[in-house]
Computed example of a mutant assay.
Amino acid sequence: MGLDQTVRDISEEISSRISAAAMGRGEWSDVCAGFTRAFPGSFAALLNQNFVRPEVSFAKVDGLEDQYLQSFVTHYSYVNPWRRFWEFASNGAICVSERDDPATKYKKSAFYNEWMRSIGDYDASIGLRLQVNDDYIIYLPVHFSVSLSEVYESRLEAVIANTRRSLTNAIQIASYLRDTSDYAAARSALVGRSNAIAFVVDRAGRLKDANHRAIDAFARARPVLNRQGSVRFLQPEITTWLGKLLHESPPDLTRKRVMNISEERWLISVNQLPVTMFSQLIRGQDQFLVQLTDLGSNGSCYDGDLLAEAYRITPAEIRLCRALSAGLLLNEAASCSGISYENARQKLKSIFRKTGVSNQSDLKLLLNSLA
């Protein structure tokens, strides 16, 4: 069998594995195994890395012990001297290390001495770089001994070039499924949010979807604005707070803050939506539900007149009830109502006594029944 036919056969086998993994009929580790089977003595990896955050959101390998993959993902991927190629090369670029950027250049680096020397004789490599979006890069490196370069280089480079289209198509399919799933998640998050200004943004604060109240607020430019697809608050301090919060967002982010505009008081709540995982290779985007509840609106939560008539609740106590029903903690409700924490505690005891409830959970149930 000629060299060209061997390259075609290997390329077709790996392309079929890529297609199977993309459609959920196979594993991405099988793609890596296709390379190591065709090129004995090598190891192959497939990774999706965000070089901005930074993070590695996906990693599969064949031919390398798991402990080395984990140490690469958690630490050495961030000090990898070849990251300049992975981060900045053109989409679809292929790097042949011995020709383009040999390992001998980095023998004094911590990456080489601490990681590459520990995994064995794999100084030569050929890798493919593909761009997912502005932040995430998928790369597929195959490592082997320098002693095998003369035998492997031209054939492996040809196989990677031949399978590049299959992997590109798989990324496009996964990206489409991710975008569709992300849109559905944003739509679902807005269901039942008609009592508040509610919208969904991504990590950069770009608007993904909004309910009718939010659209009306954007049109009025109060208390929140939409400027060329980016959300801004009438109070710049809140815009800065949200931007920092989204950028640094810890897992399962949940935050609340009160915004004061003249005589208006708004409760802002931010919750991270579950990340969609239609494809292991490409994770869903981080999306956040932002809600603004008017703490001074008489009709936003419940009938205050009915509460006063039924339980002889005072106006000051009604304001405290409204803040608590909007989701504020007692100390936050006290600050929002312009009273001390101790004063709020006494008013809450009075509300409990008048309504016959014994805790805040039961009070919220009562208030919801008067909505």
Rank of each mutant, 00 (worst) to 15 (best):
S337C: 15
G304Y: 04
V290I: 15
V52S: 14
G92H: 02
P315E: 08
I18E: 05
T180G: 10
G192R: 15
L246E: 11
E248F: 08
I18D: 07
N162Y: 05
C95Y: 05
D66I: 10
E55H: 05
Y302M: 11
G41C: 13
F51C: 00
Y176L: 13
H75G: 06
S71D: 11
K347F: 12
V142H: 07
N343C: 13
L306C: 04
L242M: 08
S230R: 14
Y341G: 09
S194V: 06
F111R: 02
A204T: 14
V275G: 02
A185S: 14
A219I: 08
S42P: 06
L128M: 00
I282L: 15
C336L: 03
L167A: 05
A174I: 07
K244E: 12
I197T: 01
R8I: 09
A371P: 00
F218T: 05
V96D: 08
G2C: 10
H212N: 13
E114Q: 11
N211R: 01
L366P: 02
R353P: 00
D4E: 15
A161S: 13
L292E: 07
R353Q: 12
I318T: 12
W115D: 00
A110C: 00
D4N: 09
R257E: 06
N48V: 07
M259H: 01
L47M: 08
R117I: 09
S19R: 14
S77Q: 06
L246S: 04
A21N: 10
D202I: 07
G299P: 09
G26P: 04
G63R: 01
Q287G: 02
D286C: 01
E264I: 02
S350G: 13
I10S: 03
R8K: 14
P274R: 04
D252I: 00
S15Q: 04
V200W: 08
E98G: 10
H247L: 10
V200F: 11
F111N: 02
L156W: 04
K349Q: 15
E264N: 12
V7C: 11
R84F: 10
W82I: 05
A21G: 07
A59M: 04
A184Q: 12
L128P: 02
N343P: 00
V258M: 07
D286H: 15
I197Y: 04
K256T: 15
Y152V: 06
A103Y: 04
G63Q: 07
P102L: 04
R353W: 07
I339Y: 10
S325H: 13
A217R: 08
N113L: 12
W241H: 01
I197R: 03
Q287K: 06
A22D: 01
I318Y: 10
I18M: 04
V151K: 12
N260M: 13
I126T: 08
T6F: 14
F88I: 00
V7E: 03
R99T: 06
T276D: 03
Q5E: 15
A20S: 06
A326M: 03
L267C: 07
I339W: 05
R129G: 00
C321H: 06
L330A: 05
R8Y: 08
S145W: 03
D30G: 05
I14W: 04
L363E: 02
E309H: 12
D62W: 00
M277Q: 14
N226Y: 05
E55F: 09
D303R: 11
